[in-house]
Simulated assay, not measured.
Amino acid sequence: MAATERIIFQPYIWEKVGKRTALEPGTPVACRNAGDALRRIEKVRDGLLSVAGAQAVRMTVDEEAGDYGEPEVLGSVGDVPGISE
């Protein structure tokens, strides 16, 4: 099987962990294309999705070979963890 492009909308939420609050990933959403992922980012920016922040990420994946490319951040809004570059 050849490598395929995956585009993911990854929301982040604040969760109480003991006495402190931590930024945790929410449920990722697979998107049809980059435009779909970026529309979701806009919904977060406009306050239509209630999350602390979100990222739209694209990467190349070859599951048979176990090869996962470097993530490319297409868009980001709000509180999100940093990705090393």
Rank of each mutant, 00 (worst) to 15 (best):
S76H: 02
T4K: 15
E64Q: 09
R40D: 01
R20G: 11
P11A: 06
N33K: 11
I83S: 00
E5W: 03
S50M: 11
R45M: 01
A52K: 06
R45C: 01
E24S: 12
A3G: 10
K16Y: 03
A65T: 01
V61S: 03
A65G: 00
V57H: 03
K16H: 10
K16M: 15
A3I: 02
M59G: 00
L23T: 09
G82H: 13
P28G: 12
R6G: 03
P11N: 04
A22V: 14
Q10M: 11
T4I: 14
N33F: 08
R32G: 07
E24C: 13
Y68C: 01
A2H: 09
G53W: 05
R32S: 13
E24W: 13
G66T: 06
A65D: 01
A37P: 08
E63Q: 08
Q10Y: 00
A3Y: 04
G69P: 00
F9C: 10
W14S: 04
Q10C: 02
E24I: 15
T4P: 00
S50G: 10
D79V: 01
P71F: 00
A2Y: 03
G18V: 11
V77R: 07
E72Q: 13
V44T: 04
I83M: 12
G35C: 00
F9W: 07
R40M: 15
T27C: 02
E72S: 05
A22F: 09
L49P: 00
T21D: 02
Q55R: 15
E24V: 15
I83N: 02
L23F: 11
G26D: 09
V77K: 09
Y12R: 08
P11W: 05
A3H: 07
Q55M: 15
